[in-house]
Amino acid sequence: MDHLDQLEQQSVFILREAYRHFDRLCMLWSIGKDSTVLLWLARKAFLGHVPFPLVHIDTSYKLPEMIAYRDRLAMEYKLTMIVGQDAASIAAGNTFPATKDLPADDPRKLTRKQCCGLLKSGALKATLHGSGVRKRLDLATGKYEIEPDSEPYTGVIVGARADEEGSRSKERYFSPRDKNNAWDVGDQPPEFWNQFKTDFAPNTHVRIHPLLDWTELNIWEYIKREAIPTVSLYYDQGDGKRYRSLGCGPCQSPIDSTSRNVDDIIAELKSGALKNIAERGGRAQDQEGRGGLEDLRKDGYM
């Protein structure tokens, strides 16, 4: 058993525990490399099946390639694919991209973080809770239809990794969130060995993190080993740039890199060339003010 095997087996164990303990379980799929590895691990755990819905929050600013890739895999893997969106804010132009050219003192102007708060955290909360519209991919027609099920999800599987960003390193494998989705970083339950918090009060939910021990390098090594399909945005298409972390178009920027495939990325990460650059460095919302992602996460962000 090598190190990747150990990581894989622990993640499979965690996924099976989650499936056992939560009747209302879902997995968040951002279409990025981490949650796609997570989806693959679910197929490992459940022998080729994915017995719970995948939830994607579509801010409408995702690159079209990501959406096409999502639907292709959903059809191929026969996923229960649920998509949520803050359609009202988008329609009203209540977003950072729609207001960024307004004068600085205009009350309608939204910061990047406020925009994340609506289109990501807010839409996620509403979709998980069921108060927001859930759309489901009809595997027969390939079209999205309104999903009648609006029961809240009580277990939410998330692809957060401890090495990715400071606040995520404080997570447990099973991490409770209160009824407002808030995360009490200072008072988390103890986690002895592989006994997780699987009992929870009504109106609360638990976030489950099977990838906590994986590093960015491990993710790419696993993508190579298992030949997991990924979006081309991660690779240099000839202009010497690639995305290291995927978010919304207006708030992300590529890094300088000539990695054209998985092998190149693994070599690049092993060489230490990216050691001094934060993985989410291309995500503009993290850089806005102190607290950054931890503030967003306390409020329910992934």
Binding site: E65, K224, A227, P229, S232, Y234, V262
Partner: peptide
């Protein structure tokens, strides 16, 4: 445009890590 390795095309030995 979906890049990355394709399980059907990739040769077995190249997945060694």
């Amino acid at each position: 445009s979906v890049a990355g390795p394709d399980p059907k095309r990739e040769a077995a030995e190249s997945t060694h890590v």
